[in-house]
């Protein structure tokens, strides 16, 4: 397993280095034509100077080796556009993104699986509840997250004005207490978090419903029913205990996917997370920043997937691989 992780890391590093360099354009051209009114024009000499400054005049292999050795020692370099250490910038933004992702993941997995379980329990007698939930969730899981985000933003933000339109905090706010700060953060995070939750709740619902439906047809459920057990015990010890493994694994796998979902949603809500930073970095061709963000995200996804893998493995030991 560790070999796989190291291998993946190497591939990530290689791609990370070359991808931005394959893109057309040059960071210093973009500095000169930044959107907005201020126009800074760099002369040929200045561009050459910056190239030398960032080591971009050196041959590729040399750049690559420098990149690898620096990355492994934890130095992600200095942003070309912002002129700040990349790790520092990512550190500031990552908190917000993780906040969003973890909250959304918690909400969607909890409600999604609970609804899925309820739906599955009623699926046998072809109930209206199950039918309705199933239709709703299937539709929901097919809508792209940025469209959900836009709809929420327009209705709750712009029309009803219940929630702020952008940002993670009120600008220039001074909080009386930690609780006030928490309220403000929550207020700002609510819509993006809801967007991310809604976009993946259908996924959890469908997974847990399907898992529970198949568990409910298993012989051991009939055994449990024959034993005259109480409903709670039946649902938690017999249905859920067997249906939960794919859901748990999915939570970790989903985390990676949600990070990329967050990129779009953060742009919609102008939320200062890593996604928004990435968009900025890409539009500026800020190689160093792009590489840094990619590296961070890749490592995070790798960690989550490894966690998912370990859960798989744990469940395999109980003899369940055939169900996953």
């Amino acid at each position: 397993m560790w070999q796989k992780i190291v291998g993946t890391l190497i591939v990530v590093l290689v791609l990370n280095f070359f991808l931005p360099r394959i893109m057309p354009g040059d960071p210093f051209n973009f500095i000169s034509v930044e959107e907005g009114s201020v126009t800074v024009t760099l002369t040929e000499d200045q561009i050459a100077h910056y190239h030398a400054y960032y080591g971009m005049d050196k041959p590729m292999p040399e750049q690559f080796i420098t990149y690898i050795s620096r990355t492994l020692s934890g130095d992600l370099g200095i942003s070309i556009y912002y002129n700040r250490p990349v790790s520092e910038m990512i550190g500031e933004r990552l908190i917000w993104t993780l906040l969003l992702v973890i909250a959304a993941l918690g909400i969607s997995s909890l409600f999604g699986s609970a609804l899925g379980l309820i739906s599955a329990y009623h699926a046998r007698e072809s109930s209206i509840l199950d039918d309705l939930l199933l239709r709703m969730m299937t539709i929901l899981s097919e809508i792209p997250d940025f469209i959900i985000g836009l709809a929420l933003l327009i209705y709750f933000g712009a029309h009803l004005k219940w929630f702020p339109l952008a940002g993670a905090t009120t600008a220039f706010a001074v909080y009386d207490s930690a609780f006030d700060a928490f309220l403000d953060y929550t207020h700002h995070a609510a819509l993006p978090c809801l967007t991310l939750s809604l976009s993946s709740i259908g996924d959890f619902y469908l997974l847990s419903r399907q898992s529970a439906v198949s568990v409910l047809t298993e012989p051991y459920i009939l055994t449990a029913r024959a034993k005259g057990l109480r409903k709670r015990r039946l649902i938690f010890h017999h249905v859920l205990a067997n249906a939960i493994s794919p859901i748990l694994a999915r939570i970790f796998m989903k985390m990676g996917g949600m990070l990329s979902g967050a990129v779009l949603v953060e742009v919609v809500f102008a939320y200062p997370g890593i996604g928004k930073l990435m968009r900025e970095a890409v539009s500026m061709r800020d190689y160093v920043l792009i590489q840094g963000i990619f590296f961070y995200v890749a490592v995070l996804i790798l960690i989550f997937n490894t966690a998912a893998d370990m859960i798989f493995k744990k469940m395999k030991q109980r003899g369940f691989h055939e169900k996953l």
């Binding site: 012989p219 051991y220 024959a226 034993k227 005259g228 015990r233 010890h237 205990a241 067997n242």
Partner: peptide
């Protein structure tokens, strides 16, 4: 059910809850 009338189910691979220890399954009722 199970208190007065009990059933020895047909012996199939998934007749017991795979996530529960044997003794616990016997103790449950």
């Amino acid at each position: 059910r199970w208190r007065q009338i009990a059933l020895v189910f047909q012996n199939a691979s998934n007749v017991l809850n795979p996530m529960m220890k044997l003794a616990d399954q016997v103790a449950e009722p």
